[in-house]
Structures are given as C-alpha cells and as structure tokens.
Design a protein around this nucleic acid. Sequence first.
DNA 1: TAGATTGTTAATCGATTAACAATC
DNA 2: TAGATTGTTAATCGATTAACAATC
Lengths: 214, 214
Amino acid sequence: MEEKEISQAVIGRLPRYFRYLGELRDEGVERISSQELSELMKVTASQIRQDFNNFGGFGQQGYGYNVEYLYEEIGKILGLDKKHNFVIIGAGNLGRALGNYMNFERRGFIFRGMFDQDKKLIGQEVRGVKIMGMEELESFVRDNNIDIAVLTIPKTSAVEIVDKLVNNGIRAIWNFAHVDLNVPKGVQVENVHLSDSLMKLSYNINRYMKENDR
Amino acid sequence: MEEKEISQAVIGRLPRYFRYLGELRDEGVERISSQELSELMKVTASQIRQDFNNFGGFGQQGYGYNVEYLYEEIGKILGLDKKHNFVIIGAGNLGRALGNYMNFERRGFIFRGMFDQDKKLIGQEVRGVKIMGMEELESFVRDNNIDIAVLTIPKTSAVEIVDKLVNNGIRAIWNFAHVDLNVPKGVQVENVHLSDSLMKLSYNINRYMKENDR
DNA sequence: TAGATTGTTAATCGATTAACAATC
DNA sequence: TAGATTGTTAATCGATTAACAATC
C-alpha cells in the first residue's frame, strides 16, 4: 500500500504553483495550459506536467487544467484543508512577527499559545494569545492537540526544548534557531536559517562584482 | 578570465559548513578530516571534498583540513570579509525583528536605514536607526552606498518599490514579500517565502500521518 | 473529425557518490 | 618509509527536459 515517494524537489515547488493558481483564480481565469503556466512562472511546461502527474492526472487533453480545481487539489496535497494547531516558543521580535501574521490562519494554521522564559513578558498578549512561562509548555502541548512548534529562541535552549516537545507528542518543528535539530523519525523539521539565506545573497553579490569588476 | 560557475546547490551548503567550522574552532579543534566532518554533519565525505575543491585545495593529504584556515576561507568565499550596508523596507513586526538581530552585524551586514509609509512610525528608532518615510528611500539608497534592501512589506507595494531600488543602484534584495520579483540581471534576489516553508512542513506532516495511519 | 494538449516514456543533463592515484 | 587522507576522475543516481502517442 506504500505510495511512491515524492521527491522534496517537487514538494518544494508546490507552494509556488499554489500561489500562482490562487492568483489566477482570483483574476477569474478558468483554464490554463501547461504552456501558458510555464511562461508565467518561468519554468518548463514539461516540469509542470511531470510535477502534477506525481499526484495523478489533473488535466484534460486538448483543454489544459481547470484553475479552480487544480488550486483546490494542490491545497489538499499540501494538507491545507486540515487544521493544524501551533505554538510559538520565544516571544521576541521574530516570534511576535510570526504570531501576528494573519495569513497562516487562512491556510489552516491556528495560533494557540506562546511561551517565553522572560517573566516580564508572561501574561502579555499577542493577537489574543497569552504568553505563558516555559514550565507550562509541556502540559499545554500535550493537552491542546498541538501539531507544530515554532522555535524562535536561541540555539542553546532550542536543543533541550526539542526533547520536551517530542516527548509530548509534537509532530513538527518550524525551526528558526540556528542549529540542526535531532528528532526521531516521524517528527518533521523545517529549518528557516535566516543568516544562511543572507550569506547566500552575500556570495552572489560578491561573485557578480568580481565577474564584472564593479 | 571567466571562472567556472559554481552551482547554487554547492553555494547553499557553504553557510552550513561555515557554521560547523565556526563551532569546531570555538571548541578549540585544530584539524578535521572530511570523514570526521561528514559524520558530524551527516553528509558524505565525498561531497565535502568535492564542494571544497570547487574553490581550490584547502586540505593536505594525510592530515585533513585546518579548521581555522578553512573557516576563514569559506568566510571569504561567502564575502563575509566585506561590509555590506542594508536598509529594511517595512517597519512592521518582521522588519523590526530583522533590524534588531545583532548577528548580521557580526557577519559584515550593517543596518543603515529603515523605511515605512505609516506616518505614525516615522521618527521612531529601531536599534538606533531612525525610521524614515518612503519618499526618502531613493535618495537614501543612492547617497549611502546601500547594497542590500530587505523587503518586509506586502507584495503589492514590493513590486513597485523594487523598480525604485534598482534605479538607484541597489545590488541585492532580500525578499520576504510573497511575490516573485522581476529585476535586471546583476541584481541578486534571495527569497524567504515563509508561508511556502510552512506549507512544505504541512505536506510532510500529512504524508507521514497517511503513511502511518495515526 | 481535426486540433490541442495532456500523460508518459525516453533522452539528457547535472549532482552525488565511489574509487583510487597522488602526495603529505 | 608507511599510513592517512586529500584531490580528482569515473560511475551512479536522480532530476529535468524533450518527444510523442493517447485522448479529449
């Protein structure tokens, strides 16, 4: 019954398809061919068809793809038709920024709790959600069906907190701490290493300057 | 005089090498073999040697790599020995979070200015940097040798602001807006699409749940 | 039916891994 | 010198692109 494994390269492209299809839908576009979509997105039509066909035939020969339908289907593939409760650990600037970002809610990600070790922050609210102390984290995760923990804390604390989260049934960690986390198989980790991203940018600036001597 | 193009796959791994080597250095480790490093980082030794050799021979047969030296060299490759001035456009939660993040400074990224269209924010300070109005953006970028613009604004405004930035000599855009930017060749763009990242996580949660029926 | 465009197989390209000769 | 480990070539693997038969 094992479904064939989809490569992460394909998965990584799905959100972008989803975004373009959503915009097309909002503009009232009803159908689109892989050729048209490829020009819009600047990828090959071949790749688009291959990607979609990993999940079954969403199109129709001679017609193309129905935008609304394809949009819905990709949403389902991404699990956006399900609700996922999340907590944010670390009530600093970044944690607050993520807590305040309303669009996650639209995609089924529900902001349930926020935690910090700083006593001065405890009791404050971020978008209606109370900041709690770290000692409440484990029971809260256990009792409130929390799927995702967002880590916006320094790397030293991140490592130890991950164990607590795992022991209390967390399913996924969205990791903004600058460290590689060790989790058992079955717990998903998605890293957002902002400084890595900035270093890549730095490399590309310098490479271009060298090549062009400016 | 064209140097051979290094693939973005390799570039994307450099910051992680840099991080591990920095930690090893801080622990006082003097030398390391590709084999040891591969176990630490959970990649193949072969890949490590291939990656480094894109930039020349940093090691020594029979010895391995000198940690300090390799760390310095990768830093240079990433352009971290150079200073880069940046401005943040959008003084919302995310913009403030990035402005307050001190570690960028350590890597040579210098926070020079912040802009927002909200009149109430103008004049406020984020880590000693004054928030200015959008009408000041173009001249500021032109006159202050700004290399990098960090976009933490909604996607509608992002597209029009990019043109202004490009016209005033910006070299790179670190884009947190949820839109693909169109820039001339020579201007580097690094996208951080947070909701894309969260959707990938969502996919992996759901895939795992399906495969394991929990 | 004819034209268009998918779904899918085959060919190509690039990235990763393995192997080993060079060399410290 | 012998042992270790790199640098680099060759083999493999996987992802992307091209081609085209199937079909709406």
